[in-house]
Write a protein that binds this DNA or RNA. Sequence first.
DNA 1: AATGAATGAGGTTTCATTCAT
DNA 2: TATGAATGAAACCTCATTCAT
Lengths: 226, 226, 226, 226
Amino acid sequence: MKKLTDDQRAEILEAGIDAFAQRGFHGASMQEIARAAGISVGVLYKYYADKEDFFNACLGHSLQSLEALLQTVTAREDKLLQYAAGIIRGLQAFSRAHPNHIRLYHQLTASSGPAARRLAEEVEGLTARLYTAYIARAQAAGDLRRDMDPRFFAFFFDNLLMMLQFSHCCDYYRARFALYCGADAGDDALVETELLKFLESAFTLERAAISHREEGEKPHDVCDCL
Amino acid sequence: MKKLTDDQRAEILEAGIDAFAQRGFHGASMQEIARAAGISVGVLYKYYADKEDFFNACLGHSLQSLEALLQTVTAREDKLLQYAAGIIRGLQAFSRAHPNHIRLYHQLTASSGPAARRLAEEVEGLTARLYTAYIARAQAAGDLRRDMDPRFFAFFFDNLLMMLQFSHCCDYYRARFALYCGADAGDDALVETELLKFLESAFTLERAAISHREEGEKPHDVCDCL
Amino acid sequence: MKKLTDDQRAEILEAGIDAFAQRGFHGASMQEIARAAGISVGVLYKYYADKEDFFNACLGHSLQSLEALLQTVTAREDKLLQYAAGIIRGLQAFSRAHPNHIRLYHQLTASSGPAARRLAEEVEGLTARLYTAYIARAQAAGDLRRDMDPRFFAFFFDNLLMMLQFSHCCDYYRARFALYCGADAGDDALVETELLKFLESAFTLERAAISHREEGEKPHDVCDCL
Amino acid sequence: MKKLTDDQRAEILEAGIDAFAQRGFHGASMQEIARAAGISVGVLYKYYADKEDFFNACLGHSLQSLEALLQTVTAREDKLLQYAAGIIRGLQAFSRAHPNHIRLYHQLTASSGPAARRLAEEVEGLTARLYTAYIARAQAAGDLRRDMDPRFFAFFFDNLLMMLQFSHCCDYYRARFALYCGADAGDDALVETELLKFLESAFTLERAAISHREEGEKPHDVCDCL
DNA sequence: AATGAATGAGGTTTCATTCAT
DNA sequence: TATGAATGAAACCTCATTCAT
């Protein structure tokens, strides 16, 4: 069995990514993907056992590129907001360059059953570890408020980043973004600035700096001081 | 001879919501839904013109309950964090009670084309207006930092709430949540507390209150002054 | 089991005739027929075993009215062309009054299998006997050319009459009629006149009056004398 | 890899013609047609968009052969009765060879709505023009009675020919034919002879040549003078 | 090895027929 | 007895997958 060249394989996978991203797993057809890739269905079934197997390969290919980006943007040992700004810019650029990769990523989040668990670990494991470690370090270094669980901190941070990507690429989220922010939804620099403002405060302000309440107080009491 | 009772209709819709939520529009089959609802396909087609019409009915049913909840939890003119806490608790309770409604909501976000825009406006319009208006009022009242665009503020807030719901209900997001927060991901009170801490700071701390930097200054300087 | 009144039965059958005539056996739906007749499907199945049984009842009802007409117009012992004119006028009037009966009659001619034989005998038997007997009598009386088999004579005569009815009522035949005769296709009097001219000659002129050929001559030789 | 050979395509179309001819458009099933043609339904849908498209292809195939025959038999510039004899023989031969093509043609005449008009023009246009032109020429040449509108003349002529074909092929018409003419209905030569006798007179005898009656006179007087 | 025509299971949808009310 | 909601077989059509060429 002759192996495909990397280029051929990439072209096939890109065709799959486009189709799956735009029409979903069930909506995309193998025939159509083969045609878009300039090959016959036979080739698809030579290298991939079935549709699901091929879908997973597309997913892997897609996430590889996203992962590569994240490796890069998280590699620099910047101070917090610069670190965040780098990631935001990186994801914005990636979203512009490869919207279908992000759309496919979104399709992925609809998976259910045991596969979902496996995929989540595969896909989110890296960033979960990276962000949590970074935040824990920042807390230890005193660059970051210490009164929050670093895991939740990282979680909320990544939540905002995921939504940012989807808001750039997925039709529904784009419309929702526009609903909230109007024409400014398209202004990458503005979005970055506003998100950084939001994060900056969330990251740095300790509750203690605002009010001097006891740990045990009920949440709604918290609000009294606002 | 009586038509479908409300209970029967609700049961059918719930069966549809379950199926669509778990397998998506194309993945779910009318036959299977009918079987799950304990009826024959003929009944589905007696009350709904076609699969899409039935899907929309499921969506409407699903969103109606979510909307009712949001109307309730946003109605109280609480101070900010209490307002947020009310919404968080409400969504957590809703997620426990109707996970498939949230899953269907997530499926919805995968829609594309012109339908996506229409749906987004229909579904997100209410919260977008509610949150933005609330935040603008809070800013005017001095309860909230004034240096952020209220639209983006509301947007990020809702982003975190959406992810919270998905993290409770959708298999992939649940796994991801567990990946970040471990067993604590299931602790509603803890999640609420941590999210409120995150929001409290994001909501209230003005950059100006932290540092007086020039535009050109590096973001990481911001943190130094804390 | 209460019997339907004749009026109710007729109304139901008329509804069936309309539906079957316009949409064909497979195209018409029992539900739609019941609605048009102002009854429930249950009643249909109370009085008729199944769709086919009901179709046959419609057919019977439809043909009864056509037969009644033919009984009337053929009853008068007119001379040939008056006899023909009476039939033509009768059929034209019937076609205007009950186009769907004629359309249903046309549907009937599409039947196949053993049912076709039975139906043909039931439906065409009357006219076949009437026409053949009339023509044989006319021949015997010397009012009609004697060199033609009266059975074929009657057959061709009825062929022209059937086509006349279809040309009045069935969309395809109407279009075809218009194709041949243009706007004049709608002129009943003109059609009658032209058809009578055609028939008059066919009925009365003996070959001998045209040429004196032998019986044995090949048909194409016949033409030489034209 | 080769597409359908012409033979295969013809076989499929013949299977469709058989089914549609015998059961009508709605009555025939694609599954059954595929089985009869020895292929799978997938093949049908590979080459034809849907049932209607396939039906039209069958129709086209069917009419093509009939049209080819008519082109041939009407091409010879024969004298009238030879011309007619040629057509009759041609149609008889065609009816024997391709009864289902004639049956399909009959199904076609049951079409209604705007499609009926289009089809009639497509199918009947050729013969309508051919016959009308021929008859007008024959009238001009003095070979044919001049007191009839050539359009109606052609129309009645074609009516008889259509009925002839149906009487050969369609079960109902066959039974009716037998009802009129008994065992002789199967005798092609006899049918031809009788029809030609009928036509010969209809074609050639002018009313004026028979009698000089007043408008008011009774038709039966016409016959007396023979 | 590559092709793409062929297969046929499975999905949506309709509608003749039944039967509880 | 009359109703019409419910049933489910069967129709059309698609597309993942196979395999002869």
